[in-house]
Computed example of a mutant assay.
Amino acid sequence: MKPSLPVQPKHIAILRLSALGDVCNLVPTVRALQRQWPDARITWIIGKGEHSLLAGLSGVEFVVYDKSTGLAGMRALWRQLADTRFDVLLHMQQAIRASVLSLGLKANVRVGYDKARAKDAQHWFTQYQLAPHSNAHVLESFMDFARVLGVEDDRLEWDLPISSTALNEARVISGEAPYLVINPCSNVRLRNFRNWSVEGYASVIEHAWVHHGLKSVLTGGGSVQERAIGDHIETLCQPDSVINAIGGTSLKGVLALIDQARAVIAPDTGPIHMANAVGTPALGLYASTNPMRAAPYCWRDFAVNAYPEAVRTYLHKSVEDVNWGQRVRHPSAMMLIKADDVIAKLDALLAHTAVTASVKEHP
């Protein structure tokens, strides 16, 4: 017999470990749950790096799982929560690792994705599934978990915490002049293929400097690949037009840089969704992933969309003929994006948000 959903949950568990962009897209669901049940406890089981971004999020108790600790880390987390029983567990991670982790958690009912959206047989690990929602954006899929519990007020709120320390870190890096943030690299992992060309970024940086008086601050992690790409971009640009901060910031510092930026340009990676979460104009670059599913939610109209062309060129199909969320895993897919298209979108984005930017800079 399928268990019933709680009408007035007192303790809600969220299981979502990764990634940076996804946890940013999940925060509005947390805020919707808080509006509906302001006295309910919310415990979020989250990854280590993701916690470093969201630490201090109001009204949320975080339990951190470091995936590098493997089964030993799972057992430690199970012991930590051994005396805790949740009214409902919202299983929002479509990965077998997370499903195994969920087995050691005590909950009256476990809610997961419908079969069409579930990956790695996630529906085997839950008792209650979401209603089908075809062609949903990632943010909307998360919000479906609040809706299934009866939440109707699904307006978008984030209110991410940014400390004065992080703001000072950003100020030291960026100086006083207005700037763009460009995060050129996505996660360094096998067959990711989300990175655009260094020449393309250099062209956009030149245009922003000459035509808009905007410096560009490069952000990213400290991997060898990211540092090499940042250094290469820097060599192609005028010295005054770019600040290379790749590998030189904390994650909260990147969030602060993004919060104070005029706009953010990035492929499908965490910082483009961080921009969306703090209300900074976001220009996403999409060819290997579908922007209708994964672009920064509030700025989807300004995403550069070469995904249909990539599907035609490398999968020999139309967008309508591939599964929702289908990736184009080809190393040349992102090269279908033209610098002129990015520049045109940037001009439109800056023009569209000029008044808003003035208000943000001079409250």
Rank of each mutant, 00 (worst) to 15 (best):
E50V: 02
H232S: 15
D83F: 01
F142T: 03
L218V: 13
P3T: 10
K48F: 04
R191T: 01
C185N: 11
S250Q: 09
I258P: 07
A310K: 03
A82V: 10
S197R: 09
S4G: 09
R117G: 04
D144S: 12
P3W: 01
G73S: 07
D321S: 06
L77G: 02
H362N: 06
F142M: 03
A166H: 15
G220R: 06
P267V: 03
A131K: 14
A261W: 00
H212R: 15
D87G: 02
W78K: 09
K2S: 13
V342E: 06
H207D: 11
E50A: 09
R227H: 01
G279L: 05
A310G: 03
P9G: 06
L26V: 04
G150Q: 14
H316D: 10
E152L: 07
D39V: 01
V204L: 14
V342F: 10
K48S: 09
A32G: 00
R155D: 04
L130C: 01
G230V: 12
N192M: 05
D301I: 06
I337K: 02
A170L: 02
N187H: 14
I243C: 08
P308C: 11
G325H: 11
L15M: 11
D347S: 13
A263F: 00
H123Y: 03
L77C: 05
L17R: 14
Y201P: 03
H91N: 08
K10D: 13
A310R: 00
Y65V: 15
E206K: 14
R171C: 03
G247P: 06
Q80L: 12
R31I: 04
P132F: 10
A256Y: 07
G220T: 07
S358Q: 14
